[in-house]
């Protein structure tokens, strides 16, 4: 039977097939292919999400490419403070192989060579008072009509610009490593600006914006015929922390703090 089987194979192989075509027909090859396919699927399970994410980002990129439009919006914002913040964003690319074999932990460098980058960035932060919903309800007069009390929404902060100092950007890559791509450097820049934004509550920009708003508005109100010393500007008073960052964008009135021209 074996001989016959072998003869049968020989008969089939009489056709002028290439070597690869020849062995592609063998059961062993089919088994081997199935095993490799299975292993590829099992081994790449953790990477599937990354592949899908990459696909999604490509789709998003395509949308943004076709969405290069102007968005014009009528506003009424009084900008009262501007902070210029400088930061050097650094990144050290470390790839390590980490895991365990039979319960024993191990860690080893995966790539030979090193690469580092330092990106100087300048971020412009501006604080503003939103007058969009300002109305007569925001103005209170004393009974004698001499003192005027203006209640303003709390200042909000916005990143109006960020700039990379490309000329001073430095990157060092060993021979065995590739240079940082534009996409990687942009991602680091974005992280750097986010770090600056997270530190906004510690900068005192809100307090500066309040004082500056008072310094801007009180002379204007005085020009309208009111006694400058009896103009009171009121804001909510609260210490800001990182948790308040979202609220800086959407503030609720709680306590109030007042400014007069004497402050």
């Amino acid at each position: 039977m074996d001989v016959n089987f072998g003869a049968k194979v020989n008969i089939i192989c009489e056709k002028p097939l290439s070597l690869s075509q020849k062995y592609m027909k063998t059961p062993a090859f089919l088994l081997f292919t199935a095993a490799i396919t299975f292993l590829s699927m099992a081994g790449c399970t953790s990477n599937d999400s990354a592949v899908n994410a990459a696909d999604t980002s490509v789709a998003a990129d395509s949308m943004s490419l076709s969405d290069l439009v102007l968005r014009v919006r009528a506003t009424s914002r009084l900008y009262t403070a501007e902070y210029q913040v400088h930061k050097i964003v650094t990144h050290r690319d470390v790839r390590r192989l980490r895991g365990q074999v039979l319960g024993h932990q191990f860690e080893a460098p995966l790539t030979l060579g090193d690469r580092k980058v330092a990106i100087p960035i300048d971020v412009t932060l501006r604080a503003y008072v939103d007058f969009t919903s300002f109305s007569q309800d925001n103005i209170e007069r004393s009974a004698d009509g001499q003192t005027i009390h203006i209640i303003l929404p709390d200042p909000k902060v916005v990143v109006t610009a960020s700039r990379v100092d490309h000329a001073r950007t430095r990157q060092y890559s060993d021979l065995l490593r590739s240079a940082y791509t534009d996409e990687e450097m942009t991602a680091f820049t974005r992280q750097g600006v986010q770090a600056v934004v997270r530190s906004i509550p510690d900068m005192g920009i809100i307090e500066t914006a309040r004082q500056s708003a008072a310094a801007t508005l009180i002379p204007i109100v005085a020009s309208l015929g009111f006694d400058e010393s009896r103009v009171v500007i009121t804001f909510r008073q609260e210490q800001y922390t990182t948790r308040d960052l979202p609220r800086i964008m959407d503030v609720e009135k709680k306590k109030h703090k007042s400014f007069t021209n004497n402050e």
């Binding site: 009424s76 914002r77 009084l78 900008y79 009262t80 403070a81 501007e82 902070y83 210029q84 913040v85 400088h86 930061k87 300048d122 501006r126 007058f131 770090a195 600056v196 530190s199 900068m203 500066t208 004082q211 500056s212 310094a215 801007t216």
Partner: peptide, 12 residues
């Protein structure tokens, strides 16, 4: 990070 400048402005 370094705050390089603080400016009081009045821009509407």
């Amino acid at each position: 990070q370094q705050v390089r400048s603080i400016e009081r402005i009045g821009q509407w």
